[in-house]
Nucleic acid binder design. Structure first.
Lengths: 352, 352
DNA sequence: CATTTTTGCACAATCGATGGTGCAATGAAT
DNA sequence: ATTCATTGCACCATCGATTGTGCAAAAATG
């Protein structure tokens, strides 16, 4: 495990070796040397020495001096689902293409943890930050503002910083309509057979519920409060909600709008407790796309949010000098059952 | 967006305000003040001022001085699948519980990118590093060694640093046996009906292939090279392999061992092109667990690798002063069809 | 009261890189 | 041969925290 923990070379080492001053070495190695009128030959000498000795800059030192770091952060609620992990994947690609270093951290939907984590990132002089699905975006904003950190909300909007989110209302309308239309005329769905499960009191859930109700009233002439079951974002709570419904009604609603893939996992847990027959006539719409979810034994219609689009827009906004505090809506896409979409992984070359 | 970008308070600011020296302030705020015999009352004064002014240490400065950072890194091949995103989730929990800051980065299975990324992490004086599923673990090792960075390989072993991996051989035996036994006596599977798809020439794939063949010979008295189709780790290549097989044989093999959930996505893409009837008599075993995958319309048996166990072991090893370069095998678990396991997300409280 | 010990803290060097400023040597212009 | 402009680089302060050392004042000891 250990060998020569030869201390890393610094500009001082190279300065001695090359007979130039540290500032010259620094200038040569960070690219500002032309501006400093360093001779081509001097530069060359130093560059040679640098890679002979495998010099790499100490980025903490650089960051300390310049109060920038070359780091770009992505704050996630959680890693462990396809929506957010795709987001991480797209994010990384973007940041790398700009020559910076992406770092991804999650804060477990805990407002306190969100703020603490961002504090830490700030302490490392992170240059920019994308705040995804934060429980308390404005709390995070307050922390960022104190240090002038550029940031954009994504997925869930805040009121103090620019936000890029899915058009949840439209998406929910599309999804709900698709569920309804998936039933043939003779097996037509009634208003009290179409339920929404999952989500909580955040902007996305509210908009989705609004869209769900609107289209329900338009197409089925009916809706009621009992058709909405917010369960929070946990598989467990969702499962419990399904179990309770099933006990009460002896079956699941034939039309099911599930607020997120995380909540969908609650349905999986429910399924594990019941035979496939309980799901034969069911149609599920899920507001999130998961490739495996798309092929379950009953029709699953999904919404794929345009993650690429959101990330791209977010970076555009951060590039502006004085971005306006507004919320940009990105259109999501309806995914019919049994569909395997390409994802960010397809951009990666496989060396086989 | 902008308000008072009031510069962050430093120990110098607090030193002026409190009438003590910067070193005293530093000692009070980093906990070493008892050792320095600072009066309780002085300490209290400084602490009060500190949170009045929302002081937080500049971690780049601290890191520069102490050449440590409080950061712990996880290097992933990719984010976007449940195996690695679960790993990220578990990793974060571990690191946070130790009071450090987790950072997760991916390197796209590109050896060059792996090394570059680790270089960057080192430049930030990351304290420890877990290298997961690296394409070139020994290359990464070489970079780490140069700077004395503690690191452990996980998922794929290296020859120069301690490694913690799944017992892929045993896992593959379990999985293969489960596939075989899933067929009833009268529909018994023949040796040429059981294929392995996916993976490439890495340690994990080789071991899985070895386990697959061993049990195949034991239970079916037969095996052949044409039953193995390595496709690399990409959905696309796997899809192509399935298509080719299907064209050649007119059907898929009834028994299918898929090397990873990423390759499984190749099967999904294939499925999207063919009606469900093509899969009625199929049994799939997948070396990776994905909750949605477990509920597909045909029996899917999965292997769940013990991610928690691997992470825990990895941190144990890094805690040793002089860890021995060996490979630790962690037993994976067989997951029967239609099973929804709890995951790292269940540890997160939901505020509903 | 004189001396030793302890308490409580200040000083200053240091980590590695950056960037403003200044100055000698060279070449050009008069 | 002077004067002036340009070239090519060195010097030094700085970013914010850590830590070894030193020293006065207070307390303990004789």
């Amino acid at each position: 495990m250990e060998h020569q923990p030869k201390k890393k070379a610094t500009i001082y080492d190279l300065s001695v070796l090359s007979g130039s001053s540290p500032s010259t070495v620094s200038a040569v190695l960070n690219g500002t040397w032309r501006k400093r009128r360093i001779k081509e030959s001097t530069a060359e000498l130093i560059r040679d020495l640098a890679d002979q000795h495998q010099y790499t800059a100490n980025l903490q030192a650089r960051g300390l001096r310049s109060s920038r770091s070359g780091l770009v952060g992505l704050l996630l609620p959680v890693h462990d689902n396809r929506y957010f992990s795709s987001m991480a994947q797209s994010f990384e690609a973007h940041v790398r293409s700009r020559g910076q270093c992406p770092i991804v951290v999650s804060a477990c939907r805990d407002p306190e943890e969100e703020r603490r984590t961002v504090e830490t990132l700030i302490s490392y002089s992170v240059d920019e930050l994308i705040v995804a699905g934060a429980t308390d975006p404005d709390g995070v904003h307050a922390v960022c503002i104190g240090s002038g950190l550029k940031h954009v909300n994504i997925d869930l909007p805040g009121s103090k910083a620019p936000s890029v989110i899915s058009d949840n209302y439209q998406g929910a309308r599309m999804l709900t309509e698709a569920i309804i239309r998936h039933f043939s005329e003779d097996l037509k769905l009634g208003p009290d057979e179409l339920y929404l499960f999952g989500g909580r009191d955040d902007h996305a859930s509210r908009e989705r519920i609004r869209g769900f109700r609107a289209i329900k009233r338009e197409l089925m002439q009916g809706d009621s409060d009992k058709c909405i079951e917010p369960t929070g974002y946990s598989p467990n709570m969702a499962q419990i909600a399904f179990e309770r419904f099933y006990e009460r009604e002896g079956k699941l609603p034939r039309g099911l709008f599930i607020n997120s893939s995380i909540n969908f996992e609650g349905l999986l847990r429910f399924m594990a407790q019941h035979p496939n027959e309980a799901f034969m006539d069911i149609v599920v719409g899920c507001y999130d796309y998961d490739p495996f979810g798309s092929f379950l034994p009953f029709p699953v219609i999904m919404i794929r949010q345009d993650i690429e689009g959101m990330i791209t827009k977010a970076f555009e906004i951060m590039a502006e000098s004085r971005p306006s505090v507004q919320t940009y809506l990105i259109q999501p896409e309806l995914v019919p059952p049994r569909t395997a979409l390409k994802g960010p992984l397809d951009a990666i070359k496989d060396i086989a």
